[in-house]
Design a binder for these strands. Structure first.
Lengths: 222, 222
DNA sequence: GGGTTCCTCCCCCGTGCGGGGGAGGGGGTT
DNA sequence: AACCCCCTCCCCCGCACGGGGGAGGAACCC
């Protein structure tokens, strides 16, 4: 028997999910919450196997609730419920410790499959977002990264050297010392970089470098 | 009916998987391959819904096979089979386009659940590796992101507003117009941001904002 | 009431940034 | 040979940036 807690501020959604889950004899909804705070309290009281968590909720939103749930009830699986188009939260939610993602627009069978998977400790991503999420997670931000890489590809090698250091937050003088150049030369390179990348200032160039994966984050501090 | 292709160089594994899948009336093993090359040829010939792919195989290993499968048979779901301890391949396999991961030491029900999930287009990660993989994937930048988030957390709300625009590459004057402020006020905020974040210039602040997920990439161009 | 923090705005001032243009040498291609 | 691109360095110049310090009003807490 899989015990489920259902947290969503929209009662219609709760009713729908409850109806779907009622059809499965192995799944039992033990409690329902209307906001994040309540979801945490009821989780501690009922100790469900899986918490279905809406991302947007009053008082304490789903994203913040995950972190607290992972601390206070580490054995409980967290499955996020989301509306199509809220992709930007997915990576963060997974980072906070969510085990899966379901689209509210998805097939009822996905809901059951997702709950089963999470109850066993597995991770489950809803079909329509699975590929996007994986490429985003593994790629760093693949869609943007691709564009950034293309732009950076037609920089000269030396310009890329300079761009890396720009991306680390170094001044032209610091870059000059690092590359054994005169500051004027660095300025010339930076100007060339800006025009080639279509960036208006070094901050935008730095962001592009960062998106393309040129920046070694460990070096950002030095 | 879910059509499955089974690719593994060890016949014992194939026999075991076949036995498990035989118990499920909805799943049919349409072909078996002993190496990666064969797996690709048979996939093109039989067009299965899901390919179960061992990571280590002769001729063409599983990792290389994924990439080719994604190109030649994009509609086919790829589910990796792995022995415990091969974690380092997981991230790369997912990056290549695999939809899931199963441990050979796992419960038979995981195998069935994973195949069903992947057949529907969802992603499935085996229980014992799910958490590690997610933390590793998000962790690539999560470790830094966590630090960046903490630093940014103790900015005032208004300072975060400014930082977002700094991260988009806007000048102080542009930020002032956007926020209906005088440029001097923006400069005061930026100065405060730099000292609080320990950044030496706005580029480093922008990188921190970017790492913390504050920057909306769509806005970077304006 | 006094205290704090935040937000807003003001001053001055030094310097780093970014655009303009030019110039020389080296390494390619045609 | 002539050509083009890359890398290096030089000049000037205007402006944006970043640090310093101060100040008033609003909101909060003790």
């Amino acid at each position: 028997m899989i015990r489920v807690l259902l947290a969503d501020d929209e009662t219609m959604i709760r009713a729908g999910v409850r109806a779907i889950l009622a059809a499965d004899p192995e799944i039992e909804v033990v409690a329902e919450a209307g906001d994040g705070r309540e979801a945490i309290d009821l989780t501690l009281a009922h100790r469900p196997d899986v918490v279905l968590l809406d991302i947007r909720m009053p008082r304490l939103d789903g994203l913040a609730a995950i972190a607290e749930l992972r601390r206070t009830a580490p054995g409980t699986g967290v499955l996020m419920l989301t509306t199509f188009g809220e992709d930007e939260y997915i990576a963060r939610a997974l980072g906070e410790g969510a085990s899966g993602f379901l689209l509210k627009t998805g097939d009822p069978r996905e809901l059951l499959a997702g709950i089963r998977a999470v109850a066993e400790g597995a991770a489950y991503l809803s079909p329509k977002v699975a590929h996007r999420v994986i490429t985003e997670l593994t790629g760093g931000r693949m869609s943007r990264t691709a564009a950034a890489r293309e732009q950076i590809a037609d920089l000269t090698p030396r310009e890329r050297d300079v761009l890396v250091l720009v991306g680390a937050g170094l001044s032209n003088a610091q870059i000059a010392r690092r590359l054994h150049l005169v500051e004027g030369t660095v300025k010339a390179h930076v100007s060339a970089i800006l025009t080639r990348l279509g960036a208006r200032n070094r901050v935008q160039a730095a962001i592009l470098a960062y998106e393309a994966g040129l920046v070694d984050p460990a070096a950002s501090g030095s």
